[in-house]
């Protein structure tokens, strides 16, 4: 039996008393591209943060490649290091240059010398030479690209992107989708939340729609 990349069981995510998202069961296969769609406030970001081991569910269980999440801070750190990373909707970039920030993606694996891969990805997605520009000099779209590349070069099996397209132009979105397809083909799992469902549906294996406090699968072919 093929091991699932992510398994959610009887999951309840909540903020205070007024907002709740319940998922009875949801499995994500390795090497798949999964898209989450839904209205603002439906819980896409919260669900992704929960899968990235950043937001503890109120009830239920999350397993990542068979490892149970949220048992302890130490075990969560190990699961994140081995399996999962996430780029937030408004990613945080640290003081310094674009290169300094991208290098942080290689720091946990200690493969700092593998910067050439990041450099070629940067050239693919950004025409301008921004490598040595300081973060304050970058546009919103360029900052987004730096954050995406910082995550793409991490040696993890699951990549989570929360609304990655909002600051990107049409060409960059196309390139980014091609990169996602390529990394999925190489065996990594990609989760994307986006309002641009039609655009992302082209590469999606599964689409989940979040509404009314729960999750419904959709057929990508029918978007």
């Amino acid at each position: 039996m093929v091991q699932k990349a992510i398994e959610l069981k009887n999951l309840t995510l909540s903020y205070g008393k007024n907002w709740k998202l319940s998922i009875a069961s949801m499995d994500i296969a390795p090497s798949s591209i999964v898209v989450l769609s839904g209205e603002n406030g439906a819980g896409k970001s919260t669900l992704l943060r929960s899968i990235a081991l950043l937001f503890k569910p109120k009830t239920g269980q999350i397993t990542v490649f068979g490892k149970t999440a949220y048992l302890s801070e130490k075990s969560d750190r190990l699961i994140r290091k081995q399996f999962v990373t996430m780029v937030h909707q408004s990613p945080y970039l640290f003081r310094g240059t674009a290169k300094d920030n991208i290098m942080l993606g290689l720091k946990s694996s200690g493969k700092i010398k593998d910067y050439s891969k990041a450099k070629s990805l940067l050239r693919l997605i950004e025409k301008e030479d921004i490598e040595n520009k300081s973060i304050e000099q970058l546009s919103g779209g360029q900052k987004q690209k730096v954050a995406l590349i910082r995550a793409l070069i991490m040696p993890v099996k699951i990549l989570i992107f929360d609304e990655p397209f909002e600051s990107l132009d049409a060409d960059s979105r196309t390139v980014f989708l091609k990169i996602c397809k390529k990394i999925s083909d190489s065996g990594r799992t990609v989760l994307i939340s986006s309002h641009r469902t039609q655009e992302v549906a082209k590469i999606a294996d599964v689409i989940y729609n979040l509404s009314d406090g729960t999750v419904f699968p959709k057929n990508p072919g029918k978007i």
Binding site: K81, M86, F94, K107, R150
Partner: peptide
Amino acid sequence: DKINETVKTLSLSKLDGNILLIKESI
């Protein structure tokens, strides 16, 4: 509060996280 989740997603060690925190708050 601003960088904590990013530090976690980058799987940085506590030491590296603290160094970044000090640099950001310099």
